[in-house]
Amino acid sequence: MDNNNELKDESVEPLNQSKHITGNVIVAGKGEGEVIATDVPLSFWGGYNSETGDIIDHHHPLYGENLTGKVFVLPGGRGSCTGSMVLLQAIYSNNSPGAIILKQIDEIISLGAIVADEIFKMKLPIIALNEPDFALAQKASYIKVNEYGKVFINH
């Protein structure tokens, strides 16, 4: 992660020095964290452990990384339809990423967060960005999403 000297207290105030963008808000909510980004889609089922937050897909470039509390920037999902349940379980047990930023709308990833919201009243923000904004998010070191779906990006 790049050091960012302009950021003194990144967790409390909005990231004033940062660029803010808006996207397609799939699930609204507040979330922030260090960015973990990839170009390769992920199947949450069979690719991610909801109890530890680790990526367990041996064929994924982020194999072994932990997503808990981070802002996960990925183009979309692949693989199993059960991804929604695995993500719900992660939200339910407070192990999920802090926010998810997508390039394409992904029904399977989205629905896990929608059900968490509808049934358990727990919010994991999910925002889909257009291609240039997604590219910015991928290069960010820290991202904050506010309750209106604004995405504050810091490099």
Binding site: T82, M85, Y92, S93
Partner: peptide, 29 residues
């Protein structure tokens, strides 16, 4: 809304994958 669909349609059958146990949340749902 997420899919930007304009209407809903009838479906004639369903196949449920949600019966795989992935933790407490799946069962609670």
């Amino acid at each position: 809304e997420v899919q930007k669909a304009k209407q809903l349609i009838d479906i004639s059958q369903a196949h449920i994958d949600g019966c795989i146990y992935t933790g407490e949340a799946s069962l609670k749902f």
